[in-house]
Every structure is written in structure tokens, then in C-alpha cells.
Amino acid sequence: MTAENADLAAEGPVLNKAILGGLKALSGVKAILALALCLTLEITLPPSGVQPPVDRQYFLYFLILCAAVFLLWPALFFKKPSLRQAMKGKDDFYAAVFIFLTVLNLLTDKFAVLPVIFFPSPDRVLSVLVEDFTYLIVVCLGSSAKLLLTGFFSGALAGLVTGIAIGFSKPAAYWLNPLIKILGPIPPTAWIPIVLVAFPTTWSGACFLIALSVWFPTSVMTSSGILNVQNAYFEVSSTLGAKRLYQIFLVGIPAAMPLIFTGLFSGACASFLTLMTAEMVGVKNGIGWYINWQREMLSYANVYAGLIIIAISFYSLITLFFKVRDRVLVWQKGMIKW
């Protein structure tokens, strides 16, 4: 065997390795294949014609955007480990997403197997998202956010105050505990008939309901968090010269923080529910109201667009919540991950 032949023989595996490495660098071969399939079917198959037409091929644009991201991702973020990490190991997941979109597109747009009224094509949902973007985000989401945040923070504040009072003061516990035990478990939305009459505006009423739904879990968790603090911490702090007020704010409350956050989290979830119900029942704007309104007009593409907006914004809020919690509770080991 000549030296030349040996070189050639060695070249095979090396080349294979290079190709494999290159494919790996694309960070998601399966996802890209699924995306390619989705794109091909979208371009080659004609629409069934049953779905109302849209101005532009938004789904196609969306897929091209995805393809650009997937192909350019490794090149763009090669040096940013955090962004590289975002794609790592998610190959199967993204592949499944594109398969789902392909099937959805086939069932709705291409063959119209599902009832057209209730199952709009991805094209139509995307077109609502793009064309009504300003209205959805600025008017609807803005109004919802204002209501939600006002309600959430006033409820959280009230919950912290009553929780701390119950945790540290016997008279407060005596008077507030029965109130919490009786009023707390009532679903906030059950108050709607009374709230609609008792409050000057539906907005203030809805705000109260959201606050109520945050107040209950926050209050319960704060007080039980404080009552569960080992007495030894208070004893140690008193032998270190800490007075009562100092003990409340710099021993009791920090020690109760993990449970306080659990309460705030339950409160946040309850507040989402209350917000949607309040908007669908009384308040005349907001994303929940939008969905209900579009449902009544049988514009299901808009309903889905609204749902997507809700999913994205609530996901962002919860993520933000957990980021704040992780920052506050760095001292804790073994936390529940979001």
C-alpha cells in the first residue's frame, strides 16, 4: 500500500467527523429537518380554499424566520455560552413543535379537515397577531396589565400586612384568623354579584377581586411562615441585642421569605384567573374581554391570537417572578425550579 492510499483511507472518517461536527454545530438536525418538511409542504401544497384568505403568507414568513434563526444561531452566538445553551438539548422539543405546526397546517389550511370556524389556519392566526398587534398589545394588554398589577400589588401588600400581624401579634391572630378562614376559601369570582353593585366602577371592583385573590394565599403563607420560624433564631437574636421590632423585620420576615414567596406565587396564579373572569364578566376592555368579544363574533383566529398573547405575557410574568425570588432567596439550597 502506498502512502497516498493510506492518506485517502484516513481521509474518509476524518471527513465524516467533520460533517458530523458541522451538523452538530447546527445545533438541532432533527429540528431543522422538521422545519424543512413543514416549509416544503407549506410551499408545495395548495390551500384548500375553504379558509378565508389572508393578505400575506404570514405562516411562510414565520417559517422562514425560524429557519434563519436555526441556521444562523450557531454562527451568531458562537461566543455567547448562555445563548448557545438555550438551544442545547432542545433538538427533539423544537422538532416536535415543527411537526405539530405541520400537522396543524395540513388539518386546517391544506385539507380543512377540522371545522373551519373553530380551527383557523396558522396563517389567519398570525395575520391577526401582525395586523392587530398595536391594538392587542397597547390597548388590550396594556389595560389588563394595569388592572393586574394594581390588584396584585395591593393584594400582596395587604396579605403581607395581615400575615405579619397574625404571625407576631396574638390579638391580631385572634381577630384576623377567623376572617381569613371564613372569607379566604371563597373563590374571589363568587363575589362578582356583590362587587358589581358595591363598587363605583367595574374597574375598581375587578381590582378588588384580584387583590382579594392574592391577599388570601399571601396572608396565610406569610403568617404560617413566621409562626414556623424556629424560636431559637429569636432567642439567639435577643442575646445578640436585637429588640422586638428588629426581630420582626430582620429575623422573622427573612426566615419566612421562602413561604411568603410560595404564597405570592399561588396568589399570582389566582390573580390571572380572576383577571380573565373579571374581564369576561364586567370590565369592558383588556385581553380577556377581547377574547370573549371575538368568541361572540365567532372570530376564532382572533381568539387564538389573544390566547397566544396571554400565554406569552403570563409566562414572562411568572419567569420574572421566579427571577426575583431566586435573587432574594440565593441563600436557600435546593429550590423548586421554574
Partner: peptide, 25 residues
Amino acid sequence: GLVFQNPYLFPWLNIHNNVAFGLRA
């Protein structure tokens, strides 16, 4: 001053702030 069998360090404070607790209080 009192030291227990269990150190009862405040878990939410780092060691510097644990030691500084008495001064702050």
C-alpha cells in the same frame, strides 16, 4: 452572649452579615 449546640446561623445572611448581626441590632 449565648452559643447553642446548633450554631443557628441566620441562613439568609452570609457569614460576614451573621457576625455583624449584633452590631447592627
